[in-house]
Design a protein around this nucleic acid. Structure first.
Lengths: 110, 110
DNA sequence: CACCATATATCGGATCCCGATATATGGTCC
DNA sequence: GGACCATATATCGGGATCCGATATATGGTG
C-alpha cells in the first residue's frame, strides 16, 4: 500500500522533482529545490530527512551510493520508477488545480 | 500579518476557489470543491470549518449572510479581495510548481 | 579566531487534516 | 412506521507533517 497516491505535500513533491535529473545528497536536494522553485521553497533540514525517510520506506526513492568527501559522508539518493510516476502524476494534479482558478481548460492530450 | 502569503494548503485553496464565483454555505463549498476537482477533493467537515475559521480570521473570507431554510441555518461565506488575490497567486505557484516537472517553461507574460 | 557553507541527524512545538461523533430536518424506500 | 440518506452545522482528538533549534564536524574566508 504505497502512500502518495492521492496526495503529496509540497516538500515531498520538490524533493522528488529535484532528483529527476540525477541522484543528489541531502544538502544538494535542498539547494536544487530552492533553485527549481525560484528561491521560493526553502526545505528545512528537519523536513528533508523526515520526508526522505518516508519516501525510501514507500519505495519512491532509494539510497544510490555513499561517498566520503573530506571526512564528511555524502549519501546520494536516487528516484525510482514509482517515484517518477508519482511526481509526474502530482504535476498533473497541480496543473489541474491551477486551472480551476486560472480558467484554462485546454484539454490537450487526454 | 496575513498568513497564506507564501503557503496554502490544498483544502484552503479549494475552499477559496469554490467561493470565487458566488458566496456559498459550508455544505455547498464541500460539494463545489468536489465538482471543481473532478471528484478528487473530498473536504471533510472537520477540515472545512477549521479552515473556514482561519480564513475568516485572516480576512480572506467573510460571513456574507445567514438564512434559515426548513428550520436549519445556512451561513453563506463570501471571498474578499484579499482572498481573491491570494487564491490567484496560489494558482500561479501551483502552475510554476507543475512546470518544474512537466518542463513547460513557456514564459508568456512576465 | 570568528564566522559561514557544507553536511548529516534528532527532537519537540505548531499546524493542519480528517474521521468520528452529535444534533436536526425532510424525503425516499420497503 | 421505521430505516436510511442527503442536507446542514459544529466539536474533539488522533495522526501526519513541517520546521526551527540544536548538535556535531570540516574547510575556507575575513
Amino acid at each position: 500500500m504505497v502512500p502518495f497516491v492521492s496526495k503529496m505535500t509540497e516538500a515531498t513533491y520538490f524533493i522528488l522533482a529535484a532528483l529527476l535529473e540525477a541522484p543528489l545528497h541531502g544538502y544538494g536536494i535542498i539547494k536544487r529545490a530552492g533553485d527549481q522553485s525560484g528561491g521560493r521553497v526553502k526545505l528545512a533540514v528537519g523536513t528533508l530527512y523526515g520526508a526522505l525517510d518516508r519516501l525510501v520506506e514507500a519505495g519512491l526513492v532509494v539510497l544510490d551510493r555513499e561517498e566520503v568527501v573530506d571526512g564528511r559522508p555524502r549519501r546520494y539518493y536516487r528516484i525510482t520508477d514509482d517515484g517518477g510516476t508519482a511526481v509526474r502524476e502530482e504535476a498533473v494534479r497541480l496543473q489541474q488545480a491551477a486551472r480551476v482558478v486560472t480558467g484554462q481548460i485546454a484539454v490537450m492530450g487526454a
